[in-house]
């Protein structure tokens, strides 16, 4: 891949990301939203909380695709891609937890007691455990990477673990929460993707652009980190 052709160095999608995020912040906070008794205005958190998890899943998926590409070509570049995308996925997962915690403190927590007292009953939710598993898997991935010295061996072993872990993640975050009882919405059907009877059309106008915007932002940050790593790599092997 030459520099001119590589998507990393183009600017049109970065401008798109910025525009979409500006739209998310303005339209997301100004447009009319349905009034639902338990949610009220906190429903606007949908544009942030749910998008974080979407972006996390997409970034992890890009990471595993690059792991597969590494195993096919044995080019160390793809391993750097896989690693950086995994790290950025973790960052988005943590942001998803933070936004979720804010949301839960207004909707799930018992208003008659201090917010902290509801923690133990909220943290036991299967969907939260599923998300924690996803993050732990990628922390383990990073630990595994750092425990091997040899460059090629490190790349090969961690790619194998990346693929294995990603495939085992499906039950953790897509199937399991639908079997176990949960307070978290989205137990039946395909949450947020069901066009007919999920979120209202008005909110969808903001939600889908928001998902794309946040994901592009994540990719942008990752490409910057990838470029730094590639430059370091070049310095090491002149």
């Amino acid at each position: 891949m030459t520099e001119a052709k590589n998507y990393m160095y183009k600017s049109w999608w970065k401008i798109t990301a910025v525009l979409l995020l500006i739209y998310t912040f303005t339209a997301g906070l100004l447009l009319k939203v349905p009034e639902l008794a338990p949610l009220q205005e906190t429903i606007r958190n949908l544009y942030f909380h749910v998008c974080m998890w979407f972006a996390m899943m997409i970034l992890f998926t890009i990471s595993v695709v690059n792991a597969v590409r590494y195993l096919r070509n044995l080019d160390i570049k793809y391993d750097i891609y896989a690693r950086q995308f995994a790290i950025m996925g973790i960052v988005f997962g943590l942001l998803g937890y933070i936004t979720g915690a804010i949301w839960a403190s207004y909707t799930w927590a018992d208003p008659n007691t201090p917010v902290g007292d509801s923690f133990s009953s909220i943290a036991r939710d299967p969907k939260l455990i599923g998300a924690a598993i996803a993050l732990l898997v990628y922390f383990a991935y990073l630990i595994l990477r750092d425990s091997v010295q040899d460059m090629d061996k490190k790349a090969r072993i961690s790619s194998v673990y990346n693929i294995f872990a990603y495939t085992m993640l499906f039950p953790a975050i897509w199937i399991l929460p639908r079997i176990l009882p949960s307070l978290h919405p989205g137990n039946e059907g395909n949450p947020a993707l069901d066009v007919k009877n999920d979120i209202s059309g008005n909110m969808r106008m903001v939600f889908y652009p928001a998902v794309i915007g946040w994901t592009l932002l994540g990719v942008w940050i990752t490409t910057l980190k990838i470029r730094i790593s590639l430059l370091k790599e070049k310095k090491l092997t002149p």
């Binding site: 455990i129 383990a140 091997v148 061996k153 194998v160 673990y161 039950p171 079997i179 176990l180």
Partner: peptide, 26 residues
Amino acid sequence: IAAKAQQNAAIMAVLGFPIIIPQLLL
């Protein structure tokens, strides 16, 4: 994987716990 990384059984537990939790819950 752990054997290839020339590690002990501890890293196997670290790698395995998050992956096995869903199956254990089921």
